[in-house]
Design a protein around this nucleic acid. Structure first.
Lengths: 134, 134
DNA sequence: TTAAAAGATGGAGCCGACTCCATGTCAACA
DNA sequence: TGTTGACATGGAGTCGGCTCCATCTTTTAA
């Protein structure tokens, strides 16, 4: 699949797709200076959109992808690598806490939206009764 | 409370506070060209932050505030007002759907974060065993 | 009363995430 | 094989949401 079709089937613009590539979120196969995409790339884009919607920046998404991917579980780590890992662990734990918090906020916001909806319903009904010409 | 204290107690910068005012999200009392804030303004800022985190733009937040506030439930509406109201109702219903969707995504993301955390834990434990100098 | 701190204002600048444009290259089909 | 449509590339521009700066005015405390 070339970029045009990929754009249509992901709903992104070609420019955005190339931008995501520049941000290292997509690595399409390149033949003769043209990009070719496959199912896996569609999955990646879907994941990006989800994460974006819940407030991750493209950089954070990149980081998440890097760590979700295949990590050599058998590699011996140097002291620095262990240090890095501890820091990264903290970052992800903070992100998790954020998600919990956001879950709670979502509930509150849903309630607010419901309240508004009710208010509007009421207003409409009142006006329906009073203006009922038929 | 003047802007300096308000900035400290909301965690926003003075510039941001004035920016939110320009966006009509805050309307501090103004005496002698100086802004004065109170508890209600703090509540507003907290609401803004929550909504921002779950992906509302400042404009959307403004709209939400306008509709959460005191609406005259007894006002007779013109045809146009009713028409507007119907449109607004749809917007809020769509927002509600979005929130449901986002709730679902959040669950998935939490799982991904847990997986990464486990992966890192494993890596660290493996390396602890093998590098245990003490 | 006056110096220094705090606040106000207007405009420029910045950053992330695109979007647009001009120009050049490749490919697919008649 | 030529031509037309799709793709590539680099750079500039846009938009939301701030942030910084210079300059000016008000407040506050010694």
């Amino acid at each position: 699949m070339k970029i045009g079709e990929f754009a249509i089937c992901t709903g992104l613009s070609k420019d955005t797709i190339r931008y995501y590539e520049k941000m290292n979120l997509l690595q399409p196969e390149i033949k003769n200076k043209h990009r070719y995409y496959n199912k896996k790339d569609i999955d990646i884009v879907e994941a990006i959109l989800k994460l974006k919607q819940t407030g991750f920046s493209l950089q954070e998404i990149k980081m998440l992808f890097d760590w979700s991917g295949n990590i050599d579980q058998n590699k011996k780590l140097t002291k620095e690598e262990i240090q890095n890992l501890l820091e990264i662990k903290v970052i992800f734990q903070e992100k998790y806490e954020q998600m919990l918090q956001r879950e709670h906020q979502l509930k509150q916001i849903k309630q607010v939206l419901l309240n508004i909806d009710n208010k509007i319903k009421h207003l409409l009904e009142k006006n329906k009764e009073e203006n009922c010409w038929f």
